[in-house]
Amino acid sequence: MPKINGNEIRPGNVLEHNGGLWAAVKVDHVKPGKGGAFAQVEMKNLRNGSKLNERFRSADKVEKVRLEQKDQQFLYEDAGMLILMDTDTYEQVQLAADLLGERRPFLQDGMMVVVEYHNEEAINAALPQKVTCKIVETEPVVKGQTAANSFKPALLDNGIKVSVPPFVGPDEDIIVNTETFEYVERA
């Protein structure tokens, strides 16, 4: 694995530090009036989700880890495990459902998921950025309510609540951003 200097750390980099795998979430370069410059790095453990703030000077060396990304198709869920199929080898893989976190409800049958591996261990899974969902319940349209930024709550078929524009009604398909949980457009 390549070693990089402490001042070369960027958000999104995966580092091997203190015997664990950490993703750099936020990086601030600080130049105090007295003493040498350093990078203040907020990191998240990829295995257990704990957070850590660490200072790295430019002379410090850290291991930068490359994760292997594979496209895999979601088949079904069984006892808290997601069953995915590698589309190249047709091999089935089991991953813990909590790997997706709060984005889990957006997972749909047959959806392609990008799984990141480190030495054959699944570290992270990413859904497509936009997903089509059906509105189950929302308030009726109020005639004359055409204010520029007025939104109303809506319940989706997967149990997630989002805010939608007033012209969107029940039983309509909409596209939702899986990262921000926001309405994007009608499907």
Rank of each mutant, 00 (worst) to 15 (best):
32 P>H: 03
101 G>D: 12
12 G>Y: 09
74 F>I: 04
87 T>S: 02
7 N>T: 15
79 A>V: 15
5 N>S: 07
142 V>I: 05
11 P>C: 09
32 P>I: 05
109 D>G: 14
49 G>C: 14
151 F>E: 11
115 V>G: 02
64 K>S: 12
178 T>C: 04
24 A>S: 01
155 L>R: 05
114 V>N: 12
46 L>Y: 02
179 E>Q: 02
16 E>T: 07
88 D>Y: 11
160 I>Y: 03
16 E>P: 00
131 V>T: 06
142 V>A: 03
162 V>R: 04
148 A>G: 13
82 L>G: 12
165 P>H: 05
3 K>T: 01
172 E>S: 08
185 E>P: 06
17 H>V: 13
141 V>D: 13
81 M>Y: 09
70 K>M: 08
133 C>Q: 08
148 A>H: 13
106 F>E: 05
80 G>N: 07
24 A>R: 08
2 P>T: 14
142 V>W: 00
33 G>N: 01
52 L>A: 12
138 T>N: 00
11 P>N: 09
185 E>S: 12
29 H>L: 02
159 G>K: 01
67 L>E: 10
113 V>E: 03
6 G>R: 08
154 A>Y: 00
63 E>T: 05
11 P>T: 03
187 A>P: 02
115 V>N: 00
116 E>F: 14
17 H>Q: 11
122 A>G: 08
149 N>I: 00
77 E>M: 15
96 A>M: 09
121 E>N: 13
37 A>D: 02
124 N>T: 14
13 N>V: 15
79 A>G: 09
77 E>R: 15
